[in-house]
């Protein structure tokens, strides 16, 4: 037996990935499908943001022979998330893997952040997880291998000087802490709950957020992270190989957090 180990196979698993139309969420959905999972794409939009991608995530999932469906969802809206869970269970019969990836970011120090922007960020990044988990957890409890994967950020672990993101950083720090608490709360149910903390990843979100001022040169490794790197981390945590990992915030940042200073 060489390569293609059984460890990252997800046959017969039903997955939901929020924010899966574009970027990191799209890569996660595709990696899960490539390895055998059926995947619901939950997003406010169906088409990818990047003009370079001319297929939808659902089309990519289906190209791997898996079932996929788009469910229009604003995770900040509890009616939407209730509908998301209902639709998923109707189509797939349950939920084994839930990836809370939907997130937004605004720039600004706290006194420069308009209340509406602040609330929007917290509503999507934190309340979105609350909305999804309230209705999804009972289904994950019924799974033999329940997995929750929250996409946080290395900005939830350390402040950043290049660009002020008070709302974003605080929301991602909260996601990491929520991950720990959920791990303790749902460990007895056999559900693992982990966070992934991406560093600078080559996505349209970074294009927009950095306004051309790239932070990629602060990555320790001599290459920039791709959405697939986060997809692979999610795949690992979702698979049997990650069965004993819970309550952990896995940093996937090319060494950004340890820094390039000597």
């Amino acid at each position: 037996m060489e390569g293609e180990g059984p460890f990252v196979k997800l046959e017969n698993r039903a997955a939901v990935v929020t924010g899966a139309a574009s970027g990191i969420g799209r890569a996660i959905a595709i990696e899960l499908a490539r390895n055998g999972a059926d995947v619901i794409v939950a997003d406010v939009r169906e088409a990818p943001k990047s003009k370079e991608e001319n297929t939808t995530t659902v089309e990519e999932i289906e190209s791997h022979g898996q079932r996929g469906a788009f469910v229009k969802t604003d995770v900040g809206d509890s009616d939407d998330t209730k509908n998301l869970i209902t639709e998923t269970v109707e189509r797939f019969g349950g939920i084994d893997i839930f990836v809370n990836n939907a997130g937004i970011s605004v720039e600004g120090k706290i006194h420069e952040t308009p209340r509406e922007d602040w609330n929007n960020v917290q509503n999507v990044n934190m309340n979105g997880i609350y909305n999804c988990m309230r209705t999804a957890i009972p289904h994950l409890q019924e799974s033999d291998s329940g997995r929750v994967i929250n996409i946080a950020s290395q900005r939830g672990m350390r402040g950043g000087a290049v660009d002020a993101k008070a709302a974003y950083s605080s929301s991602k720090g909260a996601v990491i802490q929520l991950t720990r608490q959920m791990a303790i709360d749902y460990g007895p149910d056999g559900i693992t709950v982990n966070a992934i903390c991406p560093g600078p990843i080559d996505t349209s979100m970074n294009d927009m957020d950095e306004s051309g001022e790239f932070i990629f040169d602060q990555i320790t490794l001599p290459y920039v992270g791709q959405p697939e790197d986060i997809g692979n981390a999610a795949l690992f945590l979702a698979s049997d190989a990650g069965r004993y990992i819970t309550g952990h915030a896995l940093v996937v940042d090319g060494g950004y957090l340890v820094g390039t200073e000597r």
Partner: peptide, 28 residues
Amino acid sequence: ATATLYLASPLSQFITGAELQVNGGRLA
């Protein structure tokens, strides 16, 4: 062992200087 295999393999090619806790949530 399976977690070690992940860190050794190209699946984790963008991870360095990091920690992977494999302890059933004992440090949560």
